[in-house]
Nucleic acid binder design. Structure first.
Lengths: 203, 203
DNA sequence: GAAAAAGCGGACCAGCTGGTCCGTTTCTCG
DNA sequence: CGAGAAACGGACCAGCTGGTCCGCTTTTTC
């Protein structure tokens, strides 16, 4: 019988581990991936040594922390891909994905970074890629998505929206929704367009 | 008669200054704003002390280097704003602006950074902002730009495209053009759409 | 051609990263 | 309760950043 992976037998060890994860959760979601293990230690009220003992690298923290989030993202994509209306699924997928990233800078960093650290992230990306391809194909067949739109284009639409999100986080964190609609109108094959609501930035 | 600003009287001083600017030019345009004065010194084949004597701060190098580029950007915007066809001017402006940024990472950094360093940059931005407003207003009046598109939206379209450019610089540096067209279609009020050419990224 | 001025270069410094190590404290178990 | 193991914490280290300083070299001047 295989033992569970390193169950922290001691009381204080377990307590500190929990504290660390909690601190990391908060810091990653508000500050993004750039926080250091030192920051996490300070936030959790423990020494740096303790952090490094529990999680030798930042990647280990992330794996422990974002496993469920990534699963959730996959699930959302799967649901969107299951929509009979390809376009509607696509829109839902984009809205969900960007919403997650808006509320969690760490997740955004994890998804957007060019050199994927963890195999878990790689796997998630692959799964989602497949689902996105299905959505795009369906929406294109149904004639709602412009025929020259490629599944790989969607990646860059997300990159673009993430950049807008970063630029407006402090001033107008919901502005990206407006531009999402704008981009969607560029992707549409034809048909009625809903007008954008209100006007743009405070700027 | 006012003397020209600090004319380097000595031969070697002038030579080194020229070398430094040349080195800075290359480094900034290929690497972006993150290059250090040390890098520039190494590239120019001089000691760090020499750099800091000629240009106490990185900002000084940038001012000396990008003055003409910024002027050029303003000029381009002015020309685009002068176009009788508002939409055409807008497209030209976007194409020109992004093209400049594609060929010069330093310029991109300078334009995109949130905390504007030099007053020269600030001034340029203000001028261009005014011109952009004119273009947007004209194109909207002429009915080619969707009526709910705001001048401030354009900033974020540029942010978005810059992000795509960054993400694809190594693999497919022209991909941003495709997405520019996509975004333009989202901005259009109505009318015929040209299809996107070829397909998307190598992935 | 020699002395003075101007410029040069890189050793050096302070401040900041990420990460290790070991003396002390806390826990567990008999 | 006491001994030994496990975990703690932060002083400490190496490597990097931006930036200064001063002995030496080059240029200019007379």
């Amino acid at each position: 019988m295989t033992a569970a992976v390193s169950p922290p037998t001691r009381k204080d060890a377990a307590r500190n581990r929990a504290r660390l994860l909690e601190a990391a959760e908060q810091l990653f979601s508000t500050e993004g991936l750039s926080v250091t293990l030192k920051d996490i230690a300070a936030r959790a009220g423990v020494g740096v040594g303790t952090v490094y003992r529990h999680f030798p690298t930042k990647g280990d923290v992330l794996d422990a922390l974002f496993a469920d989030r990534l699963a959730c993202a996959t699930e959302s994509a799967r649901a969107a891909a299951a929509d009979a209306d390809g376009w509607r699924g696509l829109v839902r997928y984009l809205e969900d994905a960007m919403d997650m990233q808006a509320n969690n800078c760490g997740l955004r960093g994890l998804v957007m970074e060019t050199e994927p650290s963890s195999p878990l992230v790689v796997k998630t990306r692959q799964e989602i890629t497949v689902l996105v391809q299905q959505m795009v194909a369906k929406a294109r067949e149904q004639g709602t998505l412009r025929p020259d739109f490629d599944a790989t284009d969607l990646t860059f639409v997300q990159v673009a929206l993430a950049a807008i999100m970063d630029a407006t986080r402090d001033t107008d964190p919901d502005l990206y929704r407006r531009h999402l609609k704008l981009f969607l109108d560029g992707m549409r094959s034809a048909g009625h367009r809903e007008p954008l609501e209100a006007r743009a930035a405070t700027h």
